[in-house]
Amino acid sequence: MRHLSHLSDLVVQMFVAGEQDMSALAHARHLTGLTFANAGEISLRPLEAHPGIERLVVDTRARFHDLDIITGLTRLSTLVLVQDEPIEDFTFLARHPSIRTLRLSMGRPGADYRPLASIESLTSLHLSDLDQSSCLLPLSTHGALRTLSLSTTDIPGLAEVLPEFRGLQELRVDLDSPHDVEPLRNLLITDLLMSRIASPLTLAPLRSLASLSELTIFDAADLDLAPLADLDLRLKLDRRSTYRGLDRLGSGVRVTWLR
């Protein structure tokens, strides 16, 4: 494993069920970036030997263990933790000294997100599959938070909570229907991602979002884009979807094709 000794950035992909053997990481003495893309269980215990890691991505269809190790990674700037099972507890993140960008998959129902509010360095937060938007309230007074990205089915709750976030410069919300935007129409939403939408749903409600600058649409079927014709925004479209009204879009709508 001597060939690992000079690596600073490492991607580990394993497709074997069960807990993975990470002992080889001991040879990568200069790691600053580490990505786990894995189908099995992962223990973060080997990272004790790598306190200089600045970027850690753990994306697994199973689960990860020994999250308390993250407390000792005091140079960590970017942290992504994604697993299919809910994260039970976020106390391992309390008062972390250096995390600036944080992406987390769903916590257990009723999870306590208050430890995130104690990360003073945090500027960008991405949370998936929130069951109750009210759990965000402790974060509303965070002085450094500038970017917030969310997916939740609790749209009414989101409409109540988000006005409390007064320091945000960028807000991204994932929605399943254009009509979900109605409770959010007075909020400073800059980025919007929508998926699984089809005719006869209309995009007209999006016109009420005066701050919207980027709209991404995935998995659409026969969707009419004409209601967006005179807006000024970046429009990202899925090539595998079907759309109508593309020829009616004005010069202010800048289209980018994805995939």
Rank of each mutant, 00 (worst) to 15 (best):
H3Q: 12
L4S: 00
H6Y: 05
L7A: 13
D9P: 00
V12D: 01
A17N: 14
G18P: 05
E19Q: 14
A24R: 12
A24S: 12
L31A: 06
A37V: 12
A39D: 15
I42Q: 06
I42W: 04
I42P: 05
S43C: 08
P46A: 03
G52D: 15
I53C: 06
V57T: 14
T60V: 08
R61W: 08
D66H: 12
L67Q: 11
L67A: 14
D68S: 11
I70Y: 00
S77P: 07
L81Y: 00
Q83R: 08
I87T: 09
I87R: 04
F92C: 02
R95Y: 00
H96N: 06
S98Y: 04
S98R: 07
S105Y: 01
S105Q: 03
M106W: 07
P109C: 04
G110Y: 06
A111Q: 03
A111M: 07
D112L: 04
Y113K: 00
A117D: 02
E120D: 15
E120Q: 13
E120M: 10
S121D: 07
L122I: 02
L125V: 02
S128Q: 14
D129K: 10
S134H: 09
S134L: 10
S140R: 02
T141L: 12
H142V: 00
G143A: 14
R146L: 11
R146K: 11
I155A: 02
P156C: 10
V161Y: 00
L168D: 07
E170D: 13
L171T: 10
R172G: 08
L175P: 08
D176R: 15
S177H: 12
H179N: 11
D180C: 09
D191E: 15
L192D: 05
I197C: 07
S199Q: 14
S199K: 14
T202N: 06
L206G: 02
R207H: 09
S208Y: 07
L209A: 05
L212G: 05
E214K: 12
L215S: 03
T216V: 11
T216K: 07
D224N: 11
A226S: 15
L228Y: 01
D230M: 08
L231Y: 02
L237V: 03
L237I: 04
T242N: 01
R244F: 09
D247I: 03
G252A: 10
V255L: 09
W257R: 07
R259P: 12
